[in-house]
Design a binder for these strands. Structure first.
Length: 491
RNA sequence: GGCGCGGUACCCAAGUGGUAAGGGAGAGGUCUGCAAAACCUUUAUGCGCCGGUUCGAUUCCGGCCCGCGCCUCCA
């Protein structure tokens, strides 16, 4: 049974599906107006860890994620690019999913685009209008009357009684009854794309899309709602207000918020020069697996300080896990089972599960697996690993990887993908020199150099052999001699 | 100002009222033409500071110092 911190109650609570069979969760997705940055992906990776842990616990999961494909920034950027909104967002939506794939974030069962669900939003607003909770202003926009929802602020623990109306009101919004009232439906400004609906022409406010789509796919009361910590207020607070006023039922039983990360000790921002998209990091030569590992290794409620040193550390950690996995697959089997190791393996497996069940303590879970690495390696060294031992260890690793998802090595292919993208976008100059250098080398070319070196070694021409190795190293290709021949890999 | 989070070894980081997980880096070793990789061993009498409670506190309580987040449609 997973126990998880619930923002709403401020407590760690057991997590289970209300209907006893399927866990219904909704996670706020991206606004597709630009490439995703590592802060975005920390949230998506942790939601992925939650989802995978639920599945590991044997639950059925129905997970919905929205794509916000219409909003102010999109309208602005699309206009600047001279493109229709849909064409503009399509590019970034595709990039978003490519990035999720790179980070082995599993797809939710349902992906819902805001622009494809306008009628659901309209009818939800109409339900509110029927109660006079939604009201229309002179320009045709619709707003939510916060004074009608006394529980407003219960999620973010805000006391709004001290907020005086009129203190900070946009010129555009002077018609609102209260400064805190938020937009449900925005009337179009001249030239803006709009939908013609029973509410009048316009487009949805941001908050309404999540309420409408969550209810459409998951019902009026859902098990869990997730997002970054910044969404707690006002976005999620507004979702609660809209939904609960419309249905008179609790909207989400459990609220899950992922904390922001810092980059090199500071809040990530373009002006600080520490703002990174996933693609920026791939072009610098960092591996997708290491990025995922770093993003999820610090528990979701903890501020993560994302550093290049940390990235290097996680690169090494992932490599060690992969090497261990390969070693156990290939290691000679002893005739006798090592019962001490068998017990240790089970302890580690349980510790891994216990860590995750304890408020998704990924640090604790991860530590348990490295404990297994040490024990498994020691047994392999001493030749006491039996078939039964190996099978148990591989089972534990499978369980680990069903959540962490870093054992399969797709890094080189992902980096290549990023380079191809950079070339297409005219951004190859942003790639690190070493990454570019190895791009010029095909696998065949590398292999023939490796073969030449092997010949040189056989002829005891070590000077030539070392020269080839050093040349390749300068291009980011590492050679490793072993009993079974030479292995090479792209750094 | 309001609400909230954190300060644990060189770096990252878990954790418990009874004596500090794990990763990385460093050091030593095994292996190797030399490397690299891999593996093994090793590294905090100490957990921001000061008081208190307790047989005993890093863990509980109080105060202080420092860092950070949200309070404007930024994950």
């Amino acid at each position: 049974m997973i126990r998880l911190f619930n923002t709403l109650s401020g407590q760690i609570e057991p997590l289970s599906p209300a209907d006893g069979s399927t866990f219904r969760m909704y996670a706020c997705g991206p606004t597709v107006y630009d490439y995703g940055h590592i802060g975005n992906f920390r949230t998506f990776c942790h939601v992925d860890v939650l989802r995978r842990t639920l599945l590991l616990e044997g639950l059925n999961v129905r997970h919905v994620m929205n794509i916000t494909d219409v909003d102010d920034k999109i309208i602005r950027n699309a206009a600047q690019a001279g493109l229709p909104i849909s064409q503009y967002t399509q590019k970034y939506e595709r990039a978003f999913f490519e990035d999720l794939d790179a980070l082995t974030v599993a797809r939710p069962e349902i992906i819902a685009r805001a622009t494809e669900h306008i009628p659901f939003m309209v009818s939800l607003i109409q339900r509110l209008a029927a109660q006079d909770i939604a009201y229309q202003t002179e320009d045709g926009s619709w707003y939510f009357r916060i004074s009608r929802f006394p529980a407003y602020g219960k999620l973010s623990k805000k006391d709004l009684t001290g907020i005086t109306d009129g203190a900070r009101v946009d010129v555009d919004e002077y018609e609102k009854d209260s400064a805190r009232d938020f937009a449900l439906w925005k009337a179009p400004k001249p030239g803006e794309h709009f939908w013609q609906t029973e509410l009048g022409p316009g487009r949805p406010g941001w908050h309404i899309e999540c309420s409408a789509m969550a209810m459409e796919y998951l019902g009026e009361s859902i098990d869990l709602h997730a997002g970054g910590e910044d969404l707690m207020f006002p976005h999620h607070e507004n979702e609660i207000a809209q939904s609960e006023c419309a249905t008179h039922k609790p909207f989400a039983r459990h609220w899950f918020h992922v904390r922001f990360l810092l980059v090199e000790g500071r809040k990530m921002s373009k002006s600080e020069g520490n703002f990174f998209t996933l693609r920026d990091l791939l072009l610098k030569g960092y591996k997708a697996s290491a990025i995922r590992m770093l993003l999820i290794s610090v528990p979701y409620r903890q501020q993560l300080n994302f550093t290049f040193e940390g990235l290097a550390a996680e690169t090494a950690a992932v490599e060690r896990l992969r090497a261990f996995h390969q070693r156990i697959l290939a290691a000679p089997r002893a005739a006798e089972t090592n019962f001490e190791l068998l017990a240790e393996t089970e302890e580690c497996r349980i510790a891994f599960r216990t860590g995750l069940e304890n408020d998704l303590n990924t640090a604790e879970a991860r530590a348990a697996i490295f404990e297994l690495v040490r024990a498994g390696n020691a047994a392999t060294d001493s030749g006491t690993l039996s078939q039964e031992n190996a099978a148990a260890i591989l089972d534990a690793l499978r369980e680990f990887d069903s959540v962490f998802a870093v054992l399969e090595d797709r890094d080189a292919a992902i980096t290549k993908f990023a380079l191809d993208w950079a070339e297409h976008e005219g951004r190859l100059d942003q790639a690190a020199p070493e990454v570019l250098a190895q791009r010029g080398l095909t696998d065949d070319q590398i292999q023939s150099l490796v073969d030449e070196r092997t010949q040189a070694k056989r002829a005891r021409n070590f000077a030539r052999a070392d020269q080839i190795r050093n040349d390749l190293a300068a291009k980011g290709i590492l050679l490793e001699d072993s009993k079974d021949g030479v292995r090479w890999r792209r750094k």
